[in-house]
Each structure stands twice: as C-alpha cells, then as structure tokens.
Amino acid sequence: MTAAQKVRWAPVLAFVLLACGLAWLVALPLWLGDGLAEPLAPVLLVVMMLTPAVAALIVTFALGAPARGTRLRFLGFWPLRPARRVVWLLLIGWLGPPVVVAFGILIAVALGIVQLDFTFAGLAAQIEQALPAGAPMPPIGLVVISQLAIIPVAALVNSVPALGEELGWRGWLLPALRPLGTGPALLVSGVIWGLWHSPVILLGYNFGRTDVSGVLFMTVGCVAWGVLLGWLRLRSASIWPAVVAHGSLNASAGLILIVAAGQPDLALAGPLGVAGWVAAAVVVAVLLVTGQFRRQPELGAAPVRTTRVGETDASASPSVAP
C-alpha cells in the first residue's frame, strides 16, 4: 500500500466540501447585496472563519474520523506536553508573525515594490478622512506608537476567531493528510486553505482583485504561511501555537499600511503577497537547514521521533476511519 492510499480520502473530501460549501453559504448575502460594503460584512467574515471548525466537527462526530478516544489528540487540543516545548512554540507563534511581516516589508522596499514614509502622511490622511468634521487630529506619532503597541494584544484577541479556521486546517486536515508525508501534507492543506477564501477574495477582499488572480495570490500566500503554521502544529503536536500565530498574522497584516507611502499593492507588498511569500520562504529555508522539520513528535504524544520532509510516517497521527 502506498502512502497516498493510507489517507482516508472520503472524510477528507467531505471536510473540504463542507468547509468550502459553508463558506460560500455564509458569504452569499455579500454576493446578493453590496459586497464588502454590506453593513453585515464584518460579522459575516468572522462567521466564515468558523466554517472549517464546523466542518471538522461534523466529519469527526458524524463520520467517526478520527475514531472516538483519539479525537483530542488528533485535533491537537490535548495533551500539552512536553510543556516547555509547547510554551516556547506558543511564544514563537505569538511574536514571530509580526517579525516575518516586517521582514516582508523590507523585502518589498528592496525590490522597489513600496516606499517607506516615516512622516506617516498616508496614515494621517486616512485618519483625517475617518474623523467627523471639525474633530481634532490626534498626534500622528502617538497613533503610530499605539498601533504598534496593540499588535501583541490584538494577536491574542484575534486568536479567538482564528481557532475556527485552525481547528479545521491545522487541527483536522493537516493530520489527516500526514500519511502523504510532511511536505505534501503542508502544501495540499495550504492550497485548500487558500481556495477556501475564494468567496470573499473574488469580492475584492485583501488584494482588491475581483478575478482569478486574487484567488491565485491568496492561495500562494496561504501555502507560504501554511507551511509556517503547519510547522508550529507538527513541531508542538498542539493546535494552540498555530492558533496564536494565525491571530498574530491577522493582527500585524496592516503594518504595511502604516509605513508605506501611498496605498501599496497588497498583492505585491502585503504579507500574503509576493514580498510575504519571499519572507516566509526565507524562514522556511532556515527551518529546513537547521533540521526543524526532521524532528516531529507524534501528534498528541510526548515521544519525539525523526521524520523527514516528504517522508511518510503513518504513526505520526491517529488513523482516520473512513
């Protein structure tokens, strides 16, 4: 039997169809209304983040995938051991994404994609537009400092809705695909994660592109960041570092809008755009060179065994019943 045949494809297909179908259902009022300008759009975007979790729970309980008795371990909720490793990876997940996002901004500057403006004139113009007529303009320096200082707090707040996605992508889907090998599982789950965003990307979310190019940019961005989030999941055998990292990425994604001169093209300069791909690729390369993908604990267990990228390790995750 080959590695691919060990993946229980029926539950995987059911999960993907449920997650994507529910996402389109939640986004339907936006398509029937005023798109992202719809007053309910912020609420629907948060609800959409819950659809992968709903899909994972339906597949888990309705199809018995994974089997009863292994579910908390399979999904990465428990046990959190060894505690020191999980705590360190939680810290990396919390503080690492803003560093990678900032690195991506430097790459965008080096590539000539964006110019920095430390007078923050663009940000000041946005604030002025948002203020009621006659309202005093706050000191721009204070605004910038507060925006930067709030990122760690916002990362934790954003982790709550991020759990809705991570329970699906890194909690259920990635372990279900692990028999393919580490590399293929990370890539396939990243592609599915990216395509799942299609209902709102095609409305102009993130990149302002309402055609297939926006979906392609998002998909590549999700593959790049999905490898990093997936590494946190596999290295810790816990979902929580990936949850916090997802929240941290969402909290720091707007950093480019603070420091850029004018309105940057987020498909090129944003954290999910070209500059972000390069930054994530550099971090992944460092992880590969330092052997961080070779040592992974069994998911949900304490012992550490050696696996290599692309190598099949059927024991790395509990079996998923068809």
Rank of each mutant, 00 (worst) to 15 (best):
M1E: 15
A3S: 14
A3F: 10
Q5D: 11
K6G: 12
K6P: 07
V7D: 05
R8D: 10
V12L: 11
A14G: 07
L18M: 05
A19S: 12
C20P: 05
G21W: 11
A23N: 03
A27R: 15
P29I: 02
P29F: 02
P29Y: 07
W31L: 02
L32H: 10
G33T: 03
L36I: 01
P39C: 01
P39I: 00
L40A: 13
V46H: 05
V46A: 13
V47I: 05
M49A: 12
L50Y: 03
V54R: 11
L57E: 13
V59A: 09
G69S: 04
R73W: 06
F74M: 06
F74A: 14
L75F: 14
L75S: 04
G76P: 00
G76R: 14
F77R: 09
R81A: 15
P82Q: 11
L89I: 04
G93L: 05
G93N: 08
W94Y: 03
G96K: 07
G96T: 03
G96C: 02
P97D: 13
P98T: 00
V99M: 11
V99W: 12
I105C: 08
I107A: 05
I107W: 11
A108D: 10
A121N: 06
L123H: 10
I127T: 09
Q129V: 11
L131R: 07
P138G: 00
V143N: 04
S146W: 09
I151V: 13
P152M: 12
N158A: 06
S159I: 01
L163V: 01
G168K: 11
G168Y: 03
W169I: 00
R170G: 07
R170D: 08
R170L: 06
L173K: 08
L174C: 02
P175F: 13
P175D: 14
L177Y: 15
T182I: 07
G183E: 09
L187K: 07
V188H: 01
S189E: 14
G190N: 05
W196I: 05
W196K: 06
H197T: 00
H197E: 07
S198I: 04
I201G: 13
N206I: 04
G214T: 02
G214Y: 03
V215A: 09
L216D: 06
L216M: 14
V220L: 15
G221R: 08
V223E: 11
A224Q: 10
V227G: 11
L228G: 03
L228N: 01
L229F: 05
W231P: 03
W231D: 05
W231Q: 08
A242R: 13
V244M: 10
S248Y: 05
N250V: 02
N250A: 02
A251F: 00
S252C: 12
A253D: 02
L255S: 11
L257I: 09
L257D: 15
I258M: 12
I258F: 04
A261S: 03
P264L: 04
D265Y: 05
G270F: 01
V278E: 02
A279Q: 06
A280N: 10
A285E: 04
V286T: 00
L288H: 12
G291Q: 12
G291H: 03
F293D: 00
L299P: 00
G300L: 10
R305G: 14
T307E: 14
V309W: 15
S315C: 10
S315T: 15
S315M: 10
P318Q: 13
V320A: 02
A321P: 09
